[in-house]
Design a protein around this nucleic acid. Structure first.
Length: 463
DNA sequence: TTTTGAGTTGTTCGA
DNA sequence: GTCGAACAACTCAAA
């Protein structure tokens, strides 16, 4: 009888057991599979407390689903993954492909280190419906514009969800592993202050998705823009850590008709698009995608820092902006429409560089995702793909009146304005002496700042 | 190579 | 209050 073979399944942004291509690959190749997660300080560094706490929660749920058979080690993956593979007697380490700038480099190093021990690093699937790099123009060039990408993405197609095989997988018991491995237990969640996080894990993701399908989906195309309504999926943190795979969601959407399903499908494609762009242009995580914007004049110094603090803390005197910034701190999440409004305010009204805002978002968002975050910020700033026309500058007051027409969203997050009725929360100038005294005056005048932004844009565009 | 149509999410102004 | 036009020019993608 042949000896038993084993493989390692190294979890990263795929913290689930259902519809897991790398798990299938591992189970198809070996008799037993060791589940591994590596606490990589390098990866966790830019992640703020909310995202780290959510990650630890997801790890706890995953470990529970594995009956505790999840090995957690701390260290540099290029060192510890080969150690674990050797200790497990594995001939292959299986992963979902990571196409991010850091993950890609890390996996190259790990693959090299593994190869020295005759262990293969096998990448199967990715956290995207279509793995970045696969959708190209007919000449093989990557897309820079969403709409043609979206058409090609739909033509390319995405695989159907794979059936769950968890019962047929024999999981290796990490308790039987040598003690010299740098194993740790899941750390206590970092203090997230007053931030209330979503329920972590695969089951929570699945339940939330079912609830969305049965309710808000049919009106998603309308309600997704309304921060005062609960019309969005709230799936972003789960998608980020892979508690659910996007193709699982797409399969449900494809089984339904309607504008809501089509609208959400396109949002999922946006997520794929930004990952694809970052795969082809990794420097877009830090630098302007359109390098002409390198010459854009930004404000700096004490005054600018004070305005940045006002923005961060939600005391700009623009209610929809302040509500959004306070929601970010309260929930580690902000409604998408409001993300655009506060981003536009930072860039076009305060004249601060987009990356200052992007960094703040990454520190506080539970769903903080490098590709989506950085490229959406660049979109607002005008330096990204599909850049907004120069004249598309959000008016924070108009946006508030339009998308929070009854003022419910603002009142939820800005207690100083709770005494105001209806949409008057957006129109304090109408109140005269009745305006709340404990809410700040606008830190800048939008009309003036809009003009300045247009002038600065003209200065770099050669007009 | 040239041409053509189009490009997530908006605002303001004047009739 | 509502509505349509104006707001630059350029790049991208595909025929």
């Amino acid at each position: 009888m042949a000896s038993k073979t084993s493989a390692v399944l190294w979890f990263r942004r795929d913290l689930r057991l259902g519809d897991h291509a790398a798990l299938h690959a591992a189970a198809g190749r070996a008799d037993s599979v060791l589940a591994l997660f590596v606490l990589d300080d390098e990866l966790l560094k830019p992640s703020g407390a909310p995202r780290t706490a959510f990650l630890y929660g997801c790890l706890r749920m995953l470990s529970k689903d594995l009956d505790g058979r999840l090995l957690i080690v701390r260290g540099d993956p290029a060192t510890v993954v080969p150690e674990v593979a050797e200790a497990a007697g594995a001939s292959s380490v299986h992963v979902s492909i990571d196409t991010g700038p850091y993950g890609h480099k890390r996996d190259d190093e790990v693959a090299t280190a593994l190869a020295e021990r005759d262990v293969e690093l096998v990448g199967t699937g990715s956290p995207y419906a279509v793995t970045p790099g696969r959708v190209t123009k007919s000449g093989g060039e990557p897309y820079r514009v969403f709409t043609p990408f979206y058409r090609a993405w739909k033509d390319h197609g995405y695989p159907a969800p794979a059936a769950t095989q968890r019962s047929t997988v024999e999981w290796t018991d990490p308790a039987a592993m040598p003690s010299r491995l740098p194993t740790v237990s899941i750390p206590d969640a970092p203090d997230t202050g007053s931030t209330v996080l979503p329920e972590p894990g695969e089951k929570a993701a699945s339940q939330l998705w079912r609830t969305f399908l049965d309710g808000p989906l049919s009106d998603y195309h309308r309600d997704r823009d309304r921060p005062d309504r609960d019309g969005t999926t709230h799936m972003s943190p789960y998608l980020h850590w892979g508690c659910v795979h996007p193709r699982t969601l797409l399969a449900d959407l494809d089984a339904r008709r309607g504008a809501g399903a089509e609208s959400l499908r396109s949002e999922i494609a946006w997520r794929d698009f930004h990952a694809d762009v970052l795969w082809h242009w990794p420097e877009a995580a830090r630098a302007n995608f359109d390098r002409r914007f390198d010459a854009m004049e930004h404000d700096s110094g004490e005054q600018a820092d004070a305005l940045f603090d006002a923005w961060r803390e939600g005391r700009t005197g623009y209610p929809i902006v302040d509500a959004g910034m306070r929601q970010l701190i309260a929930e580690g999440w902000m409604h998408n429409r409001v993300r655009m409004v506060v981003a536009s305010f930072l860039v076009k009204d305060l004249h601060l560089p987009w990356w200052r805002g992007a960094r703040h978002f990454m520190r506080h968002l539970v769903d903080g995702d490098l590709a989506s975050n950085q490229l959406n910020w660049q979109w607002v700033a005008g330096s990204g793909t599909d850049a907004a026309p120069y004249f598309r500058i959000f008016n924070p007051t108009t946006q508030g009146e339009k998308f929070d027409p009854d003022g419910d969203y603002v009142r939820r997050y800005v207690p100083e304005l709770r005494s105001l009725q209806g949409k008057t929360v957006h129109q304090r100038w109408k109140l005269g002496n009745d305006a709340p005294k404990d809410y700040p005056q606008p830190v800048v005048a939008h009309a003036d700042e809009r003009r300045i932004s247009l002038e600065r844009y003209n200065a770099i565009s050669g007009n």
